[in-house]
């Protein structure tokens, strides 16, 4: 029996040792937003966060997730849509959409550490996420839009705090 957290909820699973996290999410927990596309950490379609860092669920043995916090696309905007999800909708980013959960999870990890990424920062963070439909320029645009909103929100919170103090 293995225990870990998925999208804020504690779960216990009994699966074969070595089963990749991806298949526990999909076949055991029925969280199908995380996709299989290569099985070898080559395309990023299965990207989730483990303790806040992006990982490829298709090659992460479930033992490595024990007692850690996993966030999937279903949990990213559970309370309110993540700014990336809003920006993605506004820019009509997806075509087929199959890689987009992974794209958004990689982008969310990027913006969490750097809400003002340059084109080069985006290239580095997103180069492991393949989009066979070729939606890259809209991905880049949506990441920048979301980053700007996150920065604005933070500035607004800072202003609020300041006015509360004075």
């Amino acid at each position: 029996m293995l225990e870990f957290t998925v999208n804020g909820e504690s779960v216990r699973v009994e699966v074969d040792p070595g089963t990749p996290l991806l298949w526990v999410l999909r076949d055991t927990l029925k969280l199908n937003g995380t996709k299989y596309a290569c099985g070898r950490s080559l395309c990023g379609a299965c990207t989730v966060h483990v303790d806040g860092s992006p990982v490829r669920a298709c090659v992460m043995p479930i033992e490595s997730a024990a007692n850690r916090a996993v966030t999937t696309i279903e949990g990213l905007g559970a309370e309110k849509p993540h700014p990336l999800q809003t920006a993605w909708i506004e820019a009509n980013v997806p075509q087929c959409g199959y890689c987009q959960s992974g794209q958004i999870m990689s982008a969310a990890a990027l913006l969490a550490s750097n809400p003002n990424p340059s084109d080069a920062d985006i290239d580095v963070a997103m180069a492991g996420n393949l989009c066979r439909c070729g939606t890259y320029d809209r991905i880049r645009k949506a990441i920048k839009t979301a980053g700007a909103r996150i920065r604005d929100d933070r500035a607004a919170v800072r202003d609020d705090n300041r006015s509360t103090v004075t």
Partner: peptide, 19 residues
């Protein structure tokens, strides 16, 4: 004009054949 299929493709709820 927003794509009708996009909202489900950004929150993991779109059902592909694999899902």
């Amino acid at each position: 004009t927003r794509r009708v299929d996009v909202p489900a493709k950004v929150d993991g709820s779109a059902v592909f054949g694999t899902d």
